[in-house]
Simulated assay, not measured.
Amino acid sequence: MATYGYARVSSSSQSLTIQQEALRAFGCEVVRAETRTGTKFEGRTELETLLQFARTGDRIVVTRIDRLARSIADLAGIVKRMEANGVHLTAIEQPVDTTTAAGRCFLQMLGVFAEFETAIRRERQMEGIAKAKAEGAFKGRKPSIDAVRVKELAASGMGGTAIARELNVSRASVYRLMSATD
């Protein structure tokens, strides 16, 4: 029976060091780490490697549940895969140990709070963007297509496909601009 650690941060400006040290101190023989969002499972190759590699009786350890998943659906899916393979989950900083009923219960509660925290953060971000737009401070990204140039080329008799090729943009973008001026 082996003990594997999993560490995750969301951005490259964050450090994995504290998590990795805590996992090694806990006794993890192998620690896999990655810099990826925790809001979705897709693209998290290190976690996928651990899930495929771990065998019955092995344990996967995280420092906190939010390092594993930030949504109930992903957390439930990950835990279900682990349980199907007889792999246990432990969170060092929280009373989570899937070998006990209390640990499984606490895992579910923490998952709810992790998803709630993500939703609240997203709401605050959207409120901030709306406020910045209202104050004229946020204008979104710059247009990727020169609308004036599209209109000039269309006025000269050039078709949408030719304009798209000329400006190296999608035909859909050109046609959208052309129909907006009609």
Rank of each mutant, 00 (worst) to 15 (best):
A84I: 13
A76D: 14
I18Y: 15
F116P: 01
A154I: 07
I92L: 11
G140I: 00
A33N: 09
V148A: 01
F41R: 11
V96L: 10
R165H: 09
T37G: 06
T37P: 02
E135L: 01
R141N: 03
R67I: 02
E152M: 00
K40N: 12
R121W: 10
R8N: 07
E46G: 06
T17R: 04
R8A: 02
K80T: 10
K40R: 14
A2L: 12
R171F: 13
A22C: 08
Q19E: 03
K131H: 00
T35H: 04
R124S: 04
L177K: 10
A172S: 13
G86E: 15
A119C: 06
V87M: 14
T56W: 15
K139M: 05
Q19A: 01
A101W: 04
A134G: 04
E115D: 02
R24P: 02
T45W: 14
A134S: 01
L50I: 03
K40T: 07
N168G: 08
Y6A: 04
F116G: 01
G140T: 06
G5M: 11
L107N: 15
V61T: 02
E135D: 03
F138Q: 01
A164G: 04
E21D: 12
Q14E: 13
R81Y: 05
V87C: 14
E117T: 06
A162N: 12
R141L: 00
A147W: 00
M178T: 05
D182L: 14
D97F: 03
I120E: 08
G43Q: 07
R55Q: 14
A180N: 12
R24H: 11
A155W: 00
L107V: 03
G43K: 09
A119Q: 09
T100S: 11
M82I: 08
D97Q: 08
E152P: 10
R104P: 02
E93H: 15
L16D: 05
T90V: 13
G43V: 02
G159N: 09
F138G: 02
Q125F: 00
G27W: 11
V30F: 06
G136D: 01
L50Q: 10
Y6I: 08
E93A: 15
L177R: 10
E123Y: 00
L68K: 01
S156Q: 09
T56I: 13
I120Y: 05
G157P: 13
R67L: 04
M82Q: 10
G160W: 10
V150P: 08
V96T: 05
L89H: 09
T181P: 15
R124A: 00
E46K: 08
V79P: 13
K142M: 02
A130P: 00
F53N: 15
M109H: 06
G5D: 14
V87Q: 14
N85K: 15
N85H: 14
T17N: 06
T98Y: 11
G103I: 03
S71P: 14
T35E: 10
Y175L: 07
T98M: 08
V79N: 15
A73M: 12
R104N: 04
T17C: 11
T99D: 12
K142H: 00
A54K: 13
